[in-house]
Design a protein around this nucleic acid. Structure first.
Lengths: 191, 191
DNA sequence: GTCTATACAGCGATAGAC
DNA sequence: GTCTATCGCTGTATAGAC
């Protein structure tokens, strides 16, 4: 039964390396070294690089869904969205070094013409649908999906420029602006 | 003197391939095949992959500077910025397929920890400084750089989501929103 | 300036012993 | 389930003929 644990360790290491170095730039040897197993053993668990990519994407989807579910249980709708925006602050060190894990993987797979590109784009949809639901819960009936996409768009833009310039003050300012924008696009308390 | 021409063809082909497939995923054989020369001849012009990357970045900087200078000569300041925003529409097919050439290269080199990462980030600065100048020309004395960064941020966000979702209607809507935002952040005609 | 031939490391992937 | 050994291919890079 140690097989399951080894497999999980491989996926966790691949998840981290695909994020930090990129999918193409990460070799089997890199992952095996990170988990401290031989390449031969590695191939017992995953026969191709595509298989491990699929497992990594599934892991990321599960992680994000669990996180968003957790927020939905603990916070009221507005705070949930603010928490989403706050990811840019909470993860700013990693974002300045490696960008957004969702956006950078989707872009890389699109360039590679990889079969899993749509699966990677689906990671965006996890956030998109969740954001739309929260916006609707705040009383916005129409254009809730547009608002969700706009928040996603801003997150991606901030992440990309944060990686290029590594400027925490830029991130702080844009996060504040996102929060103000959100307030303006929700029904006021008198509605 | 055919050497100069061959060299230009190599850089042009590498520029396109680095954009469409990524820097890491493009091999010397790919570039040589695109220019229809042998690998041996290729190495006469560029001895390492880093050398050709440097040449590609220099080419991109020169191309963008020439384009922006051209706009500055032909259009009034507000139209120049609108033209910048309009890149998202004019290049939407390529952006949906490969993302933004500036943002995707900067992100990839950041992940690779490549020495040329700062040079790639400088490509952003070409647009940043130019946008700041146009905003200042429209009468904004303070926060012109913040406005420039905000426009860059939005462009990057739209490009990333456009690559993931390939939705022209999303691009159209966000471009319209960028133009409206710009109008709101410029001094009114009565000021 | 352009070519062929080639060196050598690292890649993804397989076979088979334990 | 984990290992060593190895395969075939591709990657960057070089040497030298023309």
């Amino acid at each position: 039964m140690a097989g399951k644990q080894t497999r999980d360790e491989i996926v966790a290491a691949a998840d981290r390396l695909f994020y930090e170095r990129g999918f193409e730039a990460t070799s089997f040897a890199d992952i095996a070294a990170a988990v401290q197993i031989s390449r031969g053993n590695f191939y017992y668990h995953f026969r191709t690089k595509d298989e491990i990519l699929t497992a990594v994407i599934a892991r990321r989807v599960a992680d994000r869904e669990a996180l968003l579910r957790h927020w939905a249980e603990e916070l009221p709708p507005l705070d949930r969205i603010e928490r989403f925006i706050g990811i840019l602050i909470a993860n700013q060190s990693k974002i300045m070094a490696y960008g957004c894990p969702v956006g950078t993987l989707a872009t890389e797979l699109a360039k590679l013409g990889h079969a899993a590109r749509d699966d990677a784009a689906h990671l965006f949809t996890v956030f998109r649908d969740w954001l739309r639901c929260q916006v609707e819960a705040l009383g916005v009936a129409e254009r809730a999906d547009d608002i969700a996409l706009h928040l996603l768009m801003r997150s991606q833009g901030v992440a990309t420029l944060a990686t290029a310039y590594k400027d925490p003050e830029f991130i702080r300012r844009e996060v504040e602006d996102m929060r103000a924008w959100l307030q303006q696009h929700l029904p006021g308390p008198s509605d």
